Simulated assay, not measured.
Amino acid sequence: MNSLNTLNIRLRKPIFNYIKRCLSDDIKQQNDIFTAEQSRQKEAVGRIQKIEINYGGPVENELLVMNKNISTPYDCAKHLGDSICNKSVVALLNGETLWHMHKPLPDSCKIEFLHYHVSNPALVNKTFWRSCSFLLGAVVSEAFKDNVKLYLHSFPSPNVKSGSFVYDVQLELEDWKPTTSELKVLSIEMIKFCQQELPLECLDVSKDLAFEIFKKNPHKTNQIPDIAENNGDKVTLFRAGNHIDISKGPMVPNTNHMGRITVANVIKLNTDIAGGPIYRFQGVALPRSLILNHFAFGVLEDRAKLLNPARIPGTQVVDNEDNSFVASMTA
């Protein structure tokens, strides 16, 4: 079959959903469970206790009296003004612990807010890159037509040096090599998703509840025991819109942090995982607050087309965000 006929088939039978389908029963059930647990945890707080949050700003310090296990870093930032609230990417507690902006604070602490223009942006970059992978998974999971069987597998620990953010997906398409137009569709869908300005919610749940949420995904259920074992028997979930996924976090507080985005390539991996081919979706993005000229961003796009060096998932090791980069890439 020549390339022209292949193109015609793609045009007659597109693999993407150009008309958004209604929320599936499975996704609705996942979100119902997440929301119910979120409400249960808030109600379980009981009598409100006060905590002291010491904010160390660049000019002056502030002492905030907040509510234990209710108030979040984002709530603290709102007390400090719109500028701090809007530009903050992630909180740093007591100079050592990164904390998601929408995750309740468990005790009194010293807090700093990190943004994209700090003198050492490594932690911020990783937070942004991790969020990009999570959001790529959200877009891919809804991009394909219903007759294309799809399971999100995992995404690696963020590493900007790799040249791309990644999500590995099991996709029932044999030897699919996306066209430039198909990659453009994915890029546009990711931009549109982020333009909804969705908060990225965070919730720690029990292992049993995580199994219930991901019971239809064999890869996630396989990963949950190992994740819980290394996280105090808890599994940390994030939600943006209706998309829920597992990640140790933290992530950016809102999808409006995303600026330029390109889904640069999709590469079929050579794995021993049963059930269908595993494809590595790769992309590159910039925070909305950072400006880069077209030529320079084009260089980043070209680099993001190369196979990302993260370890290829297989049956011998349970892959998740914590362990899926080769050692040489974790520095």
Score class of each variant (00 low, 15 high):
residue 15 I to L: 09
residue 34 F to H: 08
residue 40 R to Y: 14
residue 44 A to I: 04
residue 44 A to D: 07
residue 52 E to K: 09
residue 60 E to A: 14
residue 64 L to C: 07
residue 71 S to Q: 01
residue 72 T to N: 03
residue 75 D to M: 05
residue 77 A to W: 00
residue 79 H to V: 13
residue 81 G to L: 09
residue 81 G to N: 08
residue 85 C to Y: 13
residue 102 H to I: 10
residue 103 K to S: 09
residue 104 P to G: 05
residue 110 K to R: 11
residue 114 L to P: 03
residue 117 H to K: 07
residue 122 A to Q: 11
residue 123 L to K: 07
residue 132 C to I: 02
residue 141 S to E: 06
residue 143 A to N: 11
residue 145 K to C: 11
residue 147 N to L: 02
residue 148 V to F: 00
residue 154 S to V: 04
residue 159 N to R: 07
residue 162 S to P: 10
residue 162 S to C: 15
residue 167 Y to C: 11
residue 175 D to F: 15
residue 187 S to V: 06
residue 187 S to R: 04
residue 203 L to R: 04
residue 207 K to A: 09
residue 208 D to Y: 05
residue 208 D to W: 04
residue 215 K to L: 13
residue 218 P to I: 02
residue 219 H to G: 03
residue 227 I to M: 01
residue 237 L to K: 00
residue 244 I to R: 01
residue 250 P to G: 06
residue 263 V to N: 05
residue 263 V to L: 12
residue 271 T to F: 03
residue 275 G to P: 06
residue 279 Y to Q: 05
residue 283 G to W: 03
residue 284 V to C: 10
residue 286 L to W: 02
residue 291 I to L: 14
residue 305 K to P: 14
residue 308 N to A: 07
residue 326 V to N: 07
residue 327 A to D: 13
residue 329 M to N: 09
residue 331 A to Q: 07
